[in-house]
């Protein structure tokens, strides 16, 4: 009788507690997305690096673009200055608050553009160099566990909160033991896979972790790929004047 009572109590306890336990183990993806953003964003310092962007298209010569990035996430500011090729040297993008301008030294004009604009002729966008904002731009629609190579990952489907982002739907492969994104698929509003992004290398800059090498595969055009490589990363303080039209004009042709 006692055995039956103990068994019943135990089963009842497990029946009641197990869902609680499971629920407790349910990943908090809002928190995970915030952590991803926090790891890649510099809210307490500036950030600067050089990005080498290699674009490959079938039947065309490989294009190499090099750009210097200055970022001050605290004020939502960035400046991207094209260093190579020589013919585009001096072109640049400046974001101040919610405004993004493209500067063309040929015409000496600042033209409004968007953070979604591709950098030169590559598949990389300004947003790829800007601060991460998964947690504020997207909501989690579903998730599942999986593996990627030898890693356990969460595969998380995100949906954009507004049309201001580059892609309406995003699927992330997030490493479970270290909150970094290993793979990303970007979809259009009608669910068409636009591009796949791989993050094979990261670099720790201060307390942050930034993708050091990124491979972007254009899913619409076979054989088109873009690779970003980050170098010269630093969190040195950047003079205020850098985030200004005056500086962009000054360093341009």
């Amino acid at each position: 009788m006692k055995r039956l009572i103990y068994t019943s109590i135990l089963i009842a306890a497990l029946t009641v507690l197990t869902p609680v336990w499971v629920a407790a183990e349910d990943p908090d993806f809002d928190s995970i997305l915030r952590e991803i953003d926090d790891l890649a964003n510099f809210s307490e310092s500036d950030f600067s690096a050089v990005y080498t962007i290699i674009s490959e298209r079938p039947g065309e010569e490989r294009e190499v673009t090099q750009a210097r990035l200055f970022r001050r996430d605290l004020n939502d500011q960035f400046l991207i200055l094209i260093l190579q090729p020589d013919v585009q040297r001096g072109q640049g993008y400046l974001q101040v608050d919610e405004n993004v301008w493209f500067y063309d030294p040929e015409s000496r004009k600042f033209e409004r553009t968007t953070i979604r604009e591709n950098i030169q002729n590559s598949d990389a966008q300004n947003a790829d160099l800007d601060q991460s904002s998964f947690s504020s731009d997207y909501t989690v629609q579903s998730w599942q566990e999986g593996t990627l190579g030898s890693f356990d990952v969460y595969v998380v489907d995100l949906e954009a909160r507004s049309s201001d982002v580059a892609y309406d739907q995003v699927r992330l492969w997030i490493r479970q033991d270290q909150t970094i994104v290993l793979k990303e698929e970007d979809f259009s509003v009608n669910g068409r896979l636009m591009r796949t992004v791989l993050y094979p290398r990261y670099e720790r800059v201060g307390s942050k972790i930034i993708p050091k090498q990124v491979l972007i595969v254009d899913e619409l055009n076979d054989g088109e790929r873009t690779q970003l490589t980050m170098t010269d990363a630093t969190i040195q303080t950047i003079p205020d004047s850098v985030f200004s039209k005056a500086y962009l004009e000054r360093v341009s042709n």
């Binding site: 490959e56 670099e203 690779q227």
Partner: peptide, 13 residues
């Protein structure tokens, strides 16, 4: 890591 940008060549993956 993070050295001279010229150390990173223009080779595609």
């Amino acid at each position: 890591g993070g050295g001279d940008s010229t150390a990173i060549g223009n080779d595609f993956i």
